[in-house]
Design a protein around this nucleic acid. Structure first.
Length: 114
DNA sequence: ATTCTGACGTGGG
DNA sequence: CCCCACGCCAGAA
């Protein structure tokens, strides 16, 4: 009997991870697109926060998440100097000046969560 | 409890 | 075009 909304705080993060895990190899998406797909448009910032907490989860390819301009804004949160870029390059995603080359074509639109 | 700060995005001036 | 303010949610001081 959920008297009031029993929304687990971790639920938000979990939803984010679920979407991120779905990002295909060699593709990228944005914080905003993820936020929108989990029904929380405008919470893009929190998505980034979730990514920060995802460091322990090997299943979550955080390097495939960039900002709306295709910039690797989170690169500084990876170990090493250009780890994020390296991980992307490994998948054939080229990065130049902290920006995903051909971002528009590589962008992957998450399915709206049902 | 209050305040501030983010791996963001949008809108107004 | 650039700059500023606000919303969003969570965690640290």
């Amino acid at each position: 009997m959920a008297t009031h909304v029993t929304l687990d705080k971790s639920d938000f993060f979990e939803r984010v991870y679920k979407v991120v895990r779905d990002i295909p190899y060699g593709r990228v998406t944005t914080y905003g697109a993820i936020a929108k797909s989990i029904g929380a448009p405008g919470a893009a910032r929190t998505v980034g926060y979730a990514m920060n907490a995802s460091h322990n989860l090997p299943d979550v390819p955080a390097h495939r998440v960039v900002n709306r301009d295709g910039m690797l804004t989170g690169k500084h949160h990876f170990p090493g100097r250009d780890t994020m870029q390296r991980l992307l390059a490994q998948e054939g995603v080229m990065v130049q000046e902290d920006c995903v080359v051909n971002f528009k074509a590589l962008f992957w639109q998450p399915d709206p969560l049902v």
